[in-house]
Design a protein around this nucleic acid. Structure first.
Lengths: 340, 340
DNA sequence: GGCGAAATTGTGAACGCAAACATCCACGGG
DNA sequence: CCCGTGGATGTTTGCGTTCACAATTTCGCC
């Protein structure tokens, strides 16, 4: 850990080579863990590297190899819990395999914005791109992408995207809906997310399907926008309907808004109405009452995405693979049998 | 928007130069908006660039200039609302001035982790580093940083950091505390964040100070960890103390936990107890009751940080500047006069 | 109308690295 | 004993860009 005194350019391969008494190419070989380097010289080089505090210049490497050790992520600029968690998890996974992550967030997921974000990444010669593209409008932007850049889409269009990793929204929704049915409720209402989100659509499908399978009446679908506000608005409606005893909401924040609306109308949870949310935001356990919810495994999605991306990067490119990770139902205090 | 047919290397400056009938250097000049380029050739070059779909190779540029158009951000790998919002806001601001953002998140903000994250950024030859370093342990890591890399710290140590941007925690805390005092409460309790967070410390100072200034008794300080769980735990305690009528919590999630604890003990908010939170998370308006809280302006912090960083990057480096942005009290329904 | 300065354009080198190719050496089989 | 084989190392070249400097053109002015 000695400090180089000359405050000029940082040391380069040549400097290391000179100090170690070898050629710069040998240094390169040591760095890239090539075979055919004797243990002895490897050690010498390592020592020289340490002494000089040498660090390879990624830019130079990128220039000659034509690719960088950077992964570009296109994500929506939001603090929504799902996407934010996903981003965090992915960043950590990428870091573990020595890749840097370049985030290019985008205000809205329309085609133009996404294309621009992708362009920014292409300028940086990223090794691959991960698109967190949960909405339908994101699809077309992928079409015009050069075919030779590795790409993985998270929560994208099941119909279109080539390589795709998703949370199994349907399974989560089925688990939630079934749980409410099992508790004895005649049917289950649903407040969905925005209809152009695949996540939202999947949850709706799972809910509908479960109801159908049980031969139960399907109530009208209520639509929210992930926000607590939308849960509250829809809650104003539901609170007035005495036969509403069970609601599955597309996420926890909607559930929170619903909780408040029910509360204001004097309908108790879970005594009068049972609720199940989705996402398991950290504070869901401290809603009043604690919220039973569905927890997606963001870390699993992230590592799966990275795996698929790395396969493409390293050339063994089986494009078009899919990976799905199943969420888990977290039981807490917002579900009870219907009042008699 | 024509597509280059040859699927070989992407076009370089030379290709553009050839097509435009000029030298590669002239192309470079056009790209960098140098003076002394005739309008005529500028147009020719622009046309050639468009026709070939040429895009400059940032890696090559970085190699020769020794710096990239990338800003490294070191942040904690968490979905905490504050840091996540900050990151988002900063990313957007950086993007607007043509810089890419490289995130190197870190599991915990200890010295070693931070040093590693910084190293990763140094490897990438980032133009500057932004450190979202809200805890005390992050300080020492900054010491060993090469002095010539532009650095801005967000929410860092007021005592130590050179260039610093922070939310004015004290002012926010004062506003909240004063508001409760003004409502007629005899004193105000506080559940703080972790004591090693500067944010938390600042809020404690503001709270204490306001109480002192009003010549009011200062209740014992309760310590939380930002989580709803910690709000709940402390709430178990507070709910049993009948003389507790006003609580200022270090963030909204703590307030949520507290809300539940009070609720379980039959103490109504705001009738029996008034509460003010901090952060204004999007769902705070839908707590039961809606939460009065303090809203920091993350976007303002982000743009201020970027400004300061850019000053350093462009050489006009007045290191050691400070910038503070004042938060705003958002009135909602969780404050009322004490019961008589 | 010619001369110098300013504007414009071109030429060569260098940035730090990896790939391709060349070289050197030791060892073993015919 | 010679040549072939393969491991270990060195040399050269080029990636796409900018910088320093050189060359050329343009223009104003006496």
């Amino acid at each position: 850990m000695s400090v180089s005194v000359k405050r000029g350019r940082p040391p380069g391969m040549m400097d290391v080579a000179r100090l170690a008494g070898v050629s710069h190419q040998t240094v390169s070989r040591v760095l890239n863990e090539h075979k055919n380097v004797s243990e002895q010289t490897r050690l010498k080089v390592r020592a020289a590297i340490a002494e000089l505090g040498y660090r390879p210049d990624r830019a130079a490497r990128a220039l000659v190899t034509g690719t960088s050790q950077v992964i570009g992520v296109v994500a929506q600029n939001s603090s929504l819990f799902g996407p934010a968690s996903m981003l965090n998890a992915f960043e950590e996974a990428a870091q573990a395999v020595g890749f840097a992550v370049n985030v290019s967030s985008v205000r809205s997921l329309d085609q133009r914005s996404i294309a621009e974000a992708v362009d920014r990444h292409l300028d940086q010669r990223v090794a691959g791109i991960v698109m967190i593209a949960p909405v339908a409008s994101a699809g077309p932007a992928l079409e015009h992408l050069p075919a030779d850049v590795p790409l993985v889409t998270i929560d994208g269009d099941p119909e279109r995207s080539s390589t795709l990793v998703t949370v199994d929204q349907e399974a989560g929704a089925r688990a939630a809906t079934q749980r409410l049915l099992d508790a004895g409720h005649r049917t289950v209402w649903h407040i969905s997310g925005p209809s152009d989100w695949f996540d939202a659509a999947g949850r709706v499908r799972g809910w509908e399907q479960t109801l159908t399978d049980s031969g139960v009446e399907i109530p009208p679908l209520l639509t929210g926008d992930w926000s607590a506000a939308s849960g509250y608005r829809n809650g104003q409606l539901l609170a007035r309907l005495p036969d509403v005893t069970a609601v599955f909401t597309a996420n926890d924040h909607i559930a929170l808004g619903l909780l408040r609306a029910l509360n204001e109308h004097g309908r108790r949870v879970p005594d009068d109405v049972s609720i199940i949310g989705f996402d398991d935001v950290p504070e869901a356990a401290y809603f009043t009452p604690p919220l039973t919810t569905v927890r997606p495994d963001f870390a699993a999605v992230a590592t799966a995405s990275l795996e698929l991306l790395m396969e493409q990067v390293s050339g063994a490119a089986e494009v078009g693979r899919r990976r799905t990770v199943a969420p888990e139902l977290i039981e807490r205090g917002s579900v009870a049998p219907p009042a008699v």
